[in-house]
C-alpha cells in the first residue's frame, strides 16, 4: 500500500484527510507564522458541520468567535488573504445575526486557494516534510 506521506503529496485534500499529515503541515505553517490559516480552514468546516445538531445561540457564539479571532483584525494572516467583499459579507451576517451554515464558505475557499497555490507546494519542498519522508 502507498505510505501516507506519499499520499500527502497528491493533493492538499489528501494531506488534510490524515491526522499525521495535518500535524506535520501545521508545524510547518507555525514555523512560517501562518498556522492560523489552517485553524481557520478547519473552523469553517466545523462550523458548517455543526449546523444540524446545534442550537442557534451556539452557532451565533461560534460565528462571532471565528469572526473576532480571524477576520476582525485586518493585520491577521487570515484576514489579509480574504477579499474585502467577503469580509464585509461575513461582518454583515454577524451584525445582523443572519447566521447561516454557509456564511464562511467563500472565505474558506479563498484561504484554501491560497494554501493550494502557496503554502502547500512549499510544504512539499520543506525540510520538515523531506526529513519526515
Amino acid at each position: 500500500p502507498t505510505p501516507p506521506y506519499l499520499k500527502w503529496a497528491e493533493s492538499l485534500h489528501s494531506l488534510l484527510d490524515d491526522q499525521d499529515g495535518i500535524h506535520l503541515f501545521r508545524n510547518f505553517l507555525k514555523q512560517e507564522e501562518c498556522a492560523d490559516m489552517l485553524d481557520f480552514w478547519f473552523a469553517c468546516s466545523g462550523f458548517r458541520k455543526q449546523e444540524a445538531n446545534e442550537g442557534n445561540e451556539k452557532m451565533l457564539k461560534l460565528a462571532k468567535a471565528i469572526y473576532k479571532k480571524y477576520i476582525l483584525d485586518n493585520n491577521g494572516i487570515v484576514s489579509r488573504q480574504i477579499k474585502p467583499a467577503t469580509k464585509s459579507f461575513i461582518k454583515d451576517c454577524v451584525m445582523k445575526l443572519h447566521i447561516d451554515p454557509a456564511m464562511f464558505d467563500q472565505a474558506q475557499t479563498e484561504i484554501q486557494t491560497m494554501m493550494e497555490e502557496n503554502t502547500y507546494p512549499l510544504f512539499l519542498k520543506s525540510d520538515i516534510y523531506l526529513e519526515y519522508t
Binding site: 495535518i22 473552523a43 466545523g46 461560534l62
Partner: peptide, 20 residues
C-alpha cells in the same frame, strides 16, 4: 474569553479526521 476559545477549539477538532 475562555469559553469562546474552548468553543472555537471544539469546532476545529470536530472538523479533523478521526484516527484510523
Amino acid at each position: 474569553i475562555d469559553s469562546e476559545d474552548d468553543l472555537l477549539q471544539e469546532c476545529i477538532s470536530s472538523a479533523m479526521p478521526k484516527k484510523k
